[in-house]
Design a protein around this nucleic acid. Sequence first.
DNA 1: ACCTGAACACCGTTCAAGT
DNA 2: ACCTGAACACCGTTCAAGT
Lengths: 232, 232
Amino acid sequence: MPEQPQEPRRTPLSRDRVLRAAVAFADGSGIEALSMRRLAQELGVVPMALYKHVASKEELLDGMVEVVVAGIGGRAPGSDWKSAVRGRILGARGALLAHTWAAQVIRSRSGPTPAVLAYLDSVIAMFRAGGFSLDLTHHVMHALGSRVLGFTEELFDDPASTAPQDERAQAAAYEEMARRYPHVTELARSVAHDRGSVIGPGCDDAFEFAFALDLLLDGFERLHAQGWNSTP
Amino acid sequence: MPEQPQEPRRTPLSRDRVLRAAVAFADGSGIEALSMRRLAQELGVVPMALYKHVASKEELLDGMVEVVVAGIGGRAPGSDWKSAVRGRILGARGALLAHTWAAQVIRSRSGPTPAVLAYLDSVIAMFRAGGFSLDLTHHVMHALGSRVLGFTEELFDDPASTAPQDERAQAAAYEEMARRYPHVTELARSVAHDRGSVIGPGCDDAFEFAFALDLLLDGFERLHAQGWNSTP
DNA sequence: ACCTGAACACCGTTCAAGT
DNA sequence: ACCTGAACACCGTTCAAGT
């Protein structure tokens, strides 16, 4: 019997290996480049081999979310509810920053995966430990929305990303902009001025995230202190 | 010369007609069913005919956002900044509720379209008319995020949408849920109890939206009153 | 029983051939 | 010059044939 050519299948495929490969691929090439076919190619297997470990692409995406969310840290036991929640949410933000595709994929999922539920459970527990009523905790969780997982929908992600064009066209575009959207333009100009550059590096995401988070947490604290109730 | 068969091309194609057809199609069949090929079929033309009016599917989606955002009302001139902003944002929410796909499509776009810029300009103008500094207005707009356009990322869209299964399996799943996520379960149970149903109709979206919006607006008011500055 | 190549039913978009 | 059918380079997933 002739010797079989040694196949270089280093590690046998497993659900975990598929998921980690998908995360690494999305990190490197972007989520839009991730397809079952390309992932299989990356792993050196035939596309259909993936379907033994994930039932569908949907399940693959769910699994990728699990990997990222399971990596959220930021637990600081013993502190007051406010700094506990704050620390945990900033921890979530950190985990998501490492995987730029994660927020988008979480948004696209219909229901929460187990790791997301476990995470939410831990945040709810912090409010409850701080003496929040079930009623207030409920609405407070809604008010946080996706911010509890460390991301928010920004409407203008980078206003400075205009395609390079010649000076005259740029000046004309700017003038048109200032004429049609005077307040947007004024705001953009003042931000650029504050940061000392005409085509600035955009806004400080970390500052804006903390600004809004603290505004909400302060609001929660105030409602809690006055014994707020949804049906007075 | 034989008579040409009368073609039933009622109205000649135009960019506007293409966009309105796309909006109607997405309203009826969902955004995921919308493809260039199916839209062309709907309009009784060959797929390539669309490309004379929209350069790509991306541009089609941008155009659809324009149609929806241009339809936002809620301008109440003469009122104070808080009720003006509140009314306008609730108006945006109304416009988006009529097109369930709109929020998702806006999220997926990279930059703001002209109608979105015009809308943002009008909201910024309201804060400025209320005496807000450029600095505070800037951060306040970030804090609103997508909420300024009437939508937010809710993490659990309808927790009651469990697939129908036999009672025993359901009870087991519930018990498992209560064991692994005790705080989530407690919260869900209290909400269901308040609304008087075991498998309730979910949460009151309109209430949650207004709750969070008012919390933010109150926070803005407080910062404005105390002359808040990002660099004290 | 397991594995997998080919096929199916789609995409968005290019392009060359036809009028 | 305009219009459009066929083709290209992809998808996710099914399925039957091969080992």
